[in-house]
Write a protein that binds this DNA or RNA. Sequence first.
DNA 1: AAAAGCATCCGAAACGTTTCGGAACTGTTA
DNA 2: TAACAGTTCCGAAACGTTTCGGATGCTTTT
Lengths: 343, 343
Amino acid sequence: MATLKDVAKASGLSVTQVSRALNNHSDVNEATRDKVKAVARSLHYSPNLSARKLVSGRSGMVGLVVPLMPDLASDGVFMEGVAGLSTQFSDRDMQFVLHVTRESEQAIIPVYKRLIGNGALDGFVLMHPDENDCRASYLAREGVPFVVHGRIGTDPDHAYFDIDNEGIFYDLTQHLTALGHRRIAFLNGLSWRTYVGARLRGYQRALRDAGIGPEQEIIRNGEMTEALGLVSSVELFAADGPTPTAVICGSVRIAKGVYQALNVLGLSIPQDVSVLAHDDHLSQIQTAAFFPALSVSDAPLSESWKPLADCLADAIAGADLADVQRIGSHQIILRHSTAAPRR
Amino acid sequence: MATLKDVAKASGLSVTQVSRALNNHSDVNEATRDKVKAVARSLHYSPNLSARKLVSGRSGMVGLVVPLMPDLASDGVFMEGVAGLSTQFSDRDMQFVLHVTRESEQAIIPVYKRLIGNGALDGFVLMHPDENDCRASYLAREGVPFVVHGRIGTDPDHAYFDIDNEGIFYDLTQHLTALGHRRIAFLNGLSWRTYVGARLRGYQRALRDAGIGPEQEIIRNGEMTEALGLVSSVELFAADGPTPTAVICGSVRIAKGVYQALNVLGLSIPQDVSVLAHDDHLSQIQTAAFFPALSVSDAPLSESWKPLADCLADAIAGADLADVQRIGSHQIILRHSTAAPRR
DNA sequence: AAAAGCATCCGAAACGTTTCGGAACTGTTA
DNA sequence: TAACAGTTCCGAAACGTTTCGGATGCTTTT
């Protein structure tokens, strides 16, 4: 492999200047810079990461550590995310690597310890955080850069990219209260996920703002599957007494289950029940193909890899905290699954 | 992070001797070695991979590069394999990393080029090889160590771990010919997989040895799913004329489809049709729970990660080719799905 | 004419490790 | 007593890169 010295010799410059030229430093003549780069290319020069790491402290490698879980492989999202991050970091001349471990989620700290101890990795991506996430506190304590997909706590002191879960679910709920709904069911995800808590806060705040007390909250938690939508709907709508007039679903999958249940129960959408969902474009289900077409909040997860990579790269470069805390955009798409409640 | 120099200072020795002590070199006193190791541990010393790589040429990191494919995520095996390799290499004080790329299978060479160009990785694991695998020829040409899960061609000149696919399917076929079967169907995998070719050769050789000509071969190729077993069985057994008296299945999944089809067609196992399969313990299907219990050749894939890691580690260490070409063991488990053909 | 500023370059040190060549002992043999 | 072998240790060089502190020459200002 060609080294800096080879390039220096071939271009008649010092190693120093060649290094500065290739790294786009200020004090090198434009013409020399171009020449050096041409020579480097012709020699197939590729910087030795180990040498670079040794002196600069940066290897240009970042990683994601995940415990092997049964649902991991079946989770199509996961691989999609890994590939997305991989290409994003490639575009930044960085390497993204995945480390799958058999260790349980609790015993995962030593894995990080090894990985940062020998200095192979510059930083980490953390997915699926939970409140009091031990990985985050460990990395923060060690001073290792990392970025979280999501947020830990309100007002976190770490780099993150997240969508405005609270705001989104405030908007969804508020849309229903504005239509006159007062008994609004919320089929949320697993309670220990941070985003589930945020969504709950948004829902509750919107209810409060509409003068609906907490005693009127109708909430179900569970894995975000069709089964949750199905079972919850049957429970809620087949019961005696006042039933909800609207349902907010944490995912399109859940909404699909709700549609099935309401169909079986002979309830029509939106006349009898309004349905809303959040669409992260994860499931392959086309929301427009629902009948009636499903109204959703729309925030594709696939658009998060780029900002996520940006945040980590900037965090490693030592950017200010405020610059590496970013919120994705979202929109509400109204179709035909909501209406004013029957009176 | 503690460095060698710190350990040297703390133990009153030179950096040289500390290095030699930690790496178990010969010319260091037993007592000093123990003392040095104790000090290193107490200082939480962990060798800097970059520095080591720089001088010794080894980083202790190996990788697996895979293109992002839709079937990848759903493939439970894949993740299992990644985790298996990860733990195996961890046990050898090496790091195993996965690089998922969006590049197509053809355009994957540049990814390897980048990864070895900057010297981050010592070697690679190659999965799912095909005949004339371009990755293998590239890596061989570049002199980069790699190990193949499977074999490329007969008599390959690369490191590999494989099971004796030809021998296994020779044995399965031969078991049937010995019982008197002469029309033996073979439901094999996708034809471009190397192991599919090897299995075919075993099947054909056993037929030839039993005096059964190639015109009597009954072969189907396809993805190794229940569907293949189902569809093929219906085609083969619902046809007019002489039908097979036995079926060899490339996987337990296929066999499950065969069982279903034969049940529907009113054919009983093993009286009307004998069924055999190869079990790699991939699908969660219990072969003993088949009715009648399925006879199989047994070679758990999960046992291949250790030898695979061994081979690559040895290949990087510069072992002889013969020492890094290994064949796994297998056994034939006879249960109740085969019998002599009805005459 | 001297001083100051600028653009462009370079030598040398540093990062943490391994390894080559040899040194300093001890004990053994001629 | 000298030569030798064996054991245990160490200094210094090397790996390929970045970066600090300065050097050189040229232009502009005082």
